[in-house]
Structures are given as C-alpha cells and as structure tokens.
C-alpha cells in the first residue's frame, strides 16, 4: 500500500520553480478553491512601461488568488518572475499592499485569512523607480501591521530569487521558506560586481553566489525557517505547516540585541565566505 502511495507521489511530483505565478498560487490552495482578484481582464497594467515603449503585462506581474487552505480563507500573492524580472512597479506593488491590508481587515472582522507571498523579484522596477521604491516601503508597512494577527508566510522558490527592497519584505515575514534554487540578498551579485569590483564579487561564479546567498546557506546559518525540495506538494505542505506553528514570539528582524552581539563577534577580515559564517552561526549541515 505504502509503495503504491510513494509511487503515486513520485509520479505526481512536479517542479514548483517551473510553474508560472498563477499556477504556483493555485498549487498552494485547496483544489479548485482559488479565484483570481483583479486579474488580467481588469487590465490594471503599468502606465509607466507603455510610456517608455515597453510591452506591459495586464496583471502587471502580480497575481492575487483568494481561496481556501485547509478549509480556511487564504490569499496567495504571487510575483511572476518571467515578467520584467518580477520587478516591483506601482500597480504590481500596490496589489500586494492592498491584499495584505485586506487580510488584516479580515482578521479585525474575525475572518482568519491566511496570507502567503510568493516572492520572485529583483526589487524595484527601474522604469518606475521612485514609485517602485515607495510601494516597497508600503509593502513593508503592511507586512508589519498584519503580522500581529496571523503569520505572514513567504516562499522564495527561484529562479529569480528575491532582491532589493523586496529582500527586506521577505525578512519581515513570520515564516520564510526557500528552495535550494533560491537566492535571498539585498544587492544582486551583478550590482555588487559593478559597484565594488570583481574581486569583491564575481557575479559569473554561480557556485560562489549560491554559497553566499543561496537557500541552503541561508538555512544552514538559521536565517530562514524551511528549506524545501522543488516540489509543488512539498512547498504546499511547508506553507500549511507554517500556519499550524505558533507565531514566532520575536521575528528575526526584532531580535536586535541578539544580532548586534553576533555582529560584534564577527571579524570582517575572517568572515568572507559561506563556510566561515557557518562555523559561527551554523546549526550543522542541512540534510
């Protein structure tokens, strides 16, 4: 019997990374329960891209799906990494802000809506520069305001990863799930190479990049909550489990004294690679 189930599981296994934002969101919700809000036919695309002769996408790269998770109301907000690198423009970002604020309003009214963010983004959309930056500040504010009511769960699956101001958004979430394919960092490797030189960062060296900011490294030093396989069911399971767990008493971003002590103990001359940080902060090798 169990062999049959394992085989079925194996056959049913599908890559989460390869799914579109829309497919990812549906994959996390109870089957058939998802309903898209402000979808492509609402035609809320970016006015700023068209002004600069860049083809827009009708959902501006953010998909909001409301549905059920374990029978409870839930909203999954998924960024489409294939459109403009998942960058945050005015409309894309405001969908995230508003969905988080409506989830908070639900909780104030006694509706236990579960919020999930699927982050796949290079950060600010450069063509909307200041409006992108502004809306990211609003996303931060909305996550922090919602957290006291319910865990805000974020997944970074890859391949884009999560960068720029949106990496701060990831860090503000209550529960952070990554795959090995994912990267989480503030400044992309290319930007660092550009700003600080190739001796500081060789952006073309994928092994180096992942050893610094990849999912496995982040898990090994305790900066994220779960490292999962690239499997839609595994991701869905981890997300559901995150809502079963109690809300963290203190989010990492609130543990100021703890991290200041850790930082004080670091010799910048010694800690330059993943292994050195694991030696200090590591919980041992991850499975």
């Amino acid at each position: 019997m169990s062999v049959t189930i394992d085989l079925q599981r194996f056959l049913a296994r599908r890559s989460f990374v390869e799914l579109s934002a829309r497919e990812r969101a549906h994959a996390l919700l109870d089957k058939g329960s998802g309903k898209e809000l402000v979808g492509p036919f609402d035609r809320q695309h970016s006015v700023w891209l068209e002004m600069q002769n860049i083809v827009p996408q009708e959902d501006d790269g953010v998909v909001v799906i409301h549905g059920r998770m374990d029978g409870k109301p839930a909203v999954v907000v998924a960024i489409e990494g294939a459109f403009q690198g998942g960058s945050m423009g005015e409309v894309a970002g405001q969908k995230i802000v508003c969905a988080l604020e409506l989830a908070k309003r639900d909780h104030e009214r006694g509706i236990p809506t579960r919020p999930v963010l699927l982050l796949e983004t290079g950060g600010v959309r450069l063509q909307e520069a200041n409006l992108g930056l502004a809306v990211i500040a609003e996303i931060h504010a909305a996550i922090i305001a919602l957290r006291p009511y319910v865990p805000v769960v974020a997944v970074i699956a890859g391949l884009v990863g999560c960068f720029g101001g949106m990496s701060l958004a990831a860090a503000l979430c209550s529960h952070l799930i990554l795959t090995r394919q994912a990267r989480l960092g503030m400044n992309g490797p290319e930007v660092i190479e550009q700003e600080a030189g190739i001796a500081e960062m060789d952006a073309g060296d994928k092994r180096l990049v992942w050893s610094l900011i990849g999912g496995e490294q982040r898990a090994a030093v305790g900066l994220i909550d779960d490292l999962v396989e690239d499997d839609a069911e595994a991701v869905a399971h981890a997300v559901r489990a995150a809502f079963q767990a109690r809300r963290p008493v203190q989010h990492r971003s609130e543990q100021v004294d703890f991290f200041l002590e850790r930082l004080a103990a670091i010799d910048p001359e010694q800690v330059k690679d993943g292994a050195a940080l694991r030696a200090l902060w590591g919980k041992g090798e991850v499975k």
């Binding site: 979808g39 492509p40 083809v55 827009p56 996408q57 009708e58 489409e80 459109f83 403009q84």
Partner: peptide, 14 residues
C-alpha cells in the same frame, strides 16, 4: 481566456 506571460520569447493572450 488568458494564457501566457510577457517573458522572454513568450507572449500573453487575452
């Protein structure tokens, strides 16, 4: 119906 994404080598159709 809606299919596709506005990503490299792809298109979106409404």
């Amino acid at each position: 119906a809606h299919v596709g994404v506005v990503g490299s080598g792809d298109l979106e159709i409404l």
